[in-house]
């Protein structure tokens, strides 16, 4: 085992793709959570109206 510049350069692709990939997935989850919160609010409003 020793310094391997070729492997380092090849790994940069995974570094960039991997870190960017997490941001993309987190972004999708954020949108879903905001959608869930709105859906839950509407559901609660409906149930409150029904109760009235």
């Amino acid at each position: 085992m020793g310094i391997n510049i070729g492997a380092f350069i090849a790994s940069l692709k995974y570094m960039i793709e991997g870190w960017a990939g997490i941001f993309i997935v987190m972004g999708i989850i954020i949108v879903c959570i905001q959608g869930l919160n709105r859906f839950a609010e509407k559901l609660e409003e409906k149930e409150a109206k029904k109760a009235e």
Partner: peptide, 13 residues
């Protein structure tokens, strides 16, 4: 995580 992936590759793992 991803930075260390590159560093470990550099060190020959």
């Amino acid at each position: 995580i991803f930075f260390t992936l590159s560093m470990a590759s550099l060190l020959g793992f």
